[in-house]
């Protein structure tokens, strides 16, 4: 098999693309932390999902929060990217 290794700089040469990828990875890191917390809480303290807050199960509320955060993360990423792209169109370095 012939490998043609390219440096990461070569592969992600476009600054705008690199900037978008960087923003994506940062938002994902935050989201991942929340997701891991959700999973770990179920494993280590499974009873918590049954506790009730305002007549609703805490687990169900956590699911709802995670779903809302998912939508907000996607929207946030899009808004940041739009701002970057607008700057790039004006000739600024992203």
């Amino acid at each position: 098999m012939n490998d043609h290794p390219l440096s990461l700089q070569q592969r992600h040469a476009e600054p705008l693309s690199r900037a978008r990828a960087r923003i994506g990875r940062r938002i994902f890191a935050g989201y991942l932390a929340l997701y891991l917390l959700f999973v770990v809480a179920h494993v280590c303290w499974p009873q918590w999902s049954g506790y009730q807050v305002g007549g609703l199960g805490l687990g169900l509320l956590a699911c709802a929060v995670l779903m809302v955060v998912t939508c907000l993360s996607a929207l946030l990423f899009h808004l940041f990217c739009v701002r970057l792209e607008r700057r790039a169109e004006q000739g600024q370095q992203p």
Partner: peptide, 29 residues
């Protein structure tokens, strides 16, 4: 019950991974 709903949460989380980490380089290459 609730454990079935966890599938929904997990399915949705996968989309964020796809959008934030994979989509950009995937389209480029």
């Amino acid at each position: 019950g609730y454990d079935g709903f966890l599938y929904s949460v997990g399915f949705l989380a996968g989309w964020i991974f796809a959008l934030l980490v994979v989509a950009e380089p995937f389209r480029r290459f």
